[in-house]
């Protein structure tokens, strides 16, 4: 029998540690498929964040470095500038890592037009540490550090990364996508491919923001978490390409 669905060659034959229903696994796979398709496994270096996806290095057959919280874009800059220009460098970061503690690094990498790719997973809370308020937490959303719901007067507004990034001249591509149904997954995959291809073509900084769920920390079922992404997160964080569409 001919197999019709295989693990991407750039991924390890390993079960991930992510919680049941979590979207990290889907996003990992999309990256693996794109790297296979573009034929860049042997020249790609990944930069892992601090957060749930700190373990990403274990799931790919790629060189990887785990950098301090939020500093992946700075480390990626150091790697990219040290190696021959055909090497591909990407960061994989969550919302606490990229949008909070690492905001300066991501903005300056973007503004320099650093020729790297950033995959940004926004699940509206800090997953690894147990579901605290993130810059991307929605208004009214209950987290372990916003037990009465996020209030404007206390924590201000949800932080919009994809839109922010589209303002920098150094940015080749910025878009926001989701991965909760096949149609959305196909669009997200296309965006990830564009973001890597841009780098291969030397076009500068590309970022793909992916809305993700976090059923365990949100304390809801997987199906309810998908509903939350679709109805609540998308209402705050509209999907689409903000810069560099085809």
């Amino acid at each position: 029998m001919k197999p019709v669905y295989l693990r991407p060659q750039s991924m390890e034959d390993r079960i991930t540690h992510y919680c049941p229903g979590c979207h990290h696994g889907i996003i990992h796979r999309l990256i693996g498929e794109v790297i296979d398709e573009l034929g860049i496994r042997g020249k790609t270096i990944g930069v892992a964040p601090i957060g749930c996806s700190v373990f990403i290095y274990a799931y790919f057959k790629l060189d990887f470095v785990v950098t301090p919280h939020g500093r992946a874009p700075a480390a990626a800059t150091g790697i990219k500038r040290s190696l021959p220009s055909d090497r591909i460098v990407f960061t994989y970061q969550g919302d606490g890592d990229l949008a909070s503690i690492g905001l300066a690094e991501i903005i300056h990498a973007a503004n320099r037009g650093e020729n790297i790719t950033s995959i940004f997973v926004n699940n509206a809370n800090y997953g690894m540490t147990g579901g605290q308020l993130a810059p991307t937490t929605l208004l009214g959303q209950i987290t372990t550090t916003s037990p009465y719901g996020r209030k404007i007067a206390v924590d201000g507004y949800p932080f919009h990364i994809a839109e922010l990034m589209s303002n920098f001249k150094g940015v080749a591509y910025s878009g926001r996508f989701a991965v909760y149904d096949p149609k959305k997954i196909i669009s997200a995959r296309k965006a990830i491919k564009t973001a890597f291809k841009n780098q291969m073509e030397g076009k500068g900084f590309s970022i793909v923001e992916l809305l993700s769920n976090c059923p365990i920390n949100w304390r809801v079922s997987v199906s309810d978490s998908i509903k939350f992404v679709k109805e609540n997160m998308e209402a705050e964080f509209p999907l689409g390409v903000f810069k560099g569409g085809e």
């Binding site: 270096i45 930069v47 470095v65 950098t67 301090p68 500093r71 700075a74 480390a75 990626a76 800059t77 150091g78 790697i79 990219k80 500038r81 040290s82 190696l83 300066a104 690094e105 300056h108």
Partner: peptide, 15 residues
């Protein structure tokens, strides 16, 4: 902070 992390990246790349 960024400087030392850029150093980290360059060093990791063998420079």
């Amino acid at each position: 902070i960024a400087a030392i992390n850029m150093v980290m990246g360059a060093s990791a790349a063998g420079a």
